[in-house]
Simulated scan of single mutants.
Amino acid sequence: MNAKLFEPINIQNLRLKNRIVMSPMCMYSCEKQDGKVTPFHISHYESRAAGQAGLIILEASAVQPEGRISPEDLGIWSDEHVDGLKQMNERIHTYGSKSGIQLAHAGRKANLEGDIYAPSAIPFNDQFKTPKEMTKSQIEEIITAFKQAAKRAKQANFDLVEIHAAHGYLINQFLSPLTNKRTDEYGGSKENRYRMLKNIIESVQAEFEGPIFVRISASEYHDDGNSMSDMIYFSQQMKNQGIDLIDCSSGGVVPVKINTYPGYQVKLAETIKHEAEILTGAVGLITTGIHAEEILQNNRADLIFVARAFLRNPYWPKQVADELGVQLEGPKQYNRGWQ
Rank of each mutant, 00 (worst) to 15 (best):
6 F>H: 04
10 N>M: 13
23 S>M: 11
27 M>K: 12
31 E>Y: 10
31 E>C: 10
38 T>Y: 01
39 P>L: 00
40 F>M: 01
40 F>Y: 06
41 H>W: 00
53 A>P: 09
59 E>V: 01
60 A>D: 00
60 A>H: 08
67 G>K: 01
69 I>Y: 02
89 N>C: 07
93 H>G: 14
101 I>W: 01
105 H>V: 08
113 E>Q: 14
113 E>F: 13
134 M>T: 02
146 F>I: 02
150 A>L: 05
150 A>D: 11
153 A>S: 12
163 I>T: 04
164 H>L: 09
167 H>G: 00
172 N>E: 09
172 N>D: 11
174 F>R: 03
180 N>L: 11
184 D>C: 04
184 D>S: 09
189 S>N: 01
192 N>C: 03
199 N>W: 04
202 E>K: 13
207 E>M: 10
213 F>A: 11
216 I>T: 14
217 S>H: 08
219 S>Y: 15
226 N>P: 15
232 I>T: 10
234 F>W: 07
237 Q>E: 15
247 D>G: 07
252 G>K: 04
260 T>P: 10
261 Y>I: 08
270 E>G: 08
273 K>W: 02
275 E>K: 14
278 I>L: 10
278 I>N: 00
279 L>G: 01
280 T>I: 06
283 V>T: 01
296 L>K: 05
297 Q>G: 10
302 D>H: 10
304 I>M: 07
307 A>M: 12
312 R>F: 15
316 W>M: 09
322 D>R: 15
328 L>Q: 05
331 P>W: 13
331 P>A: 15
339 Q>E: 14
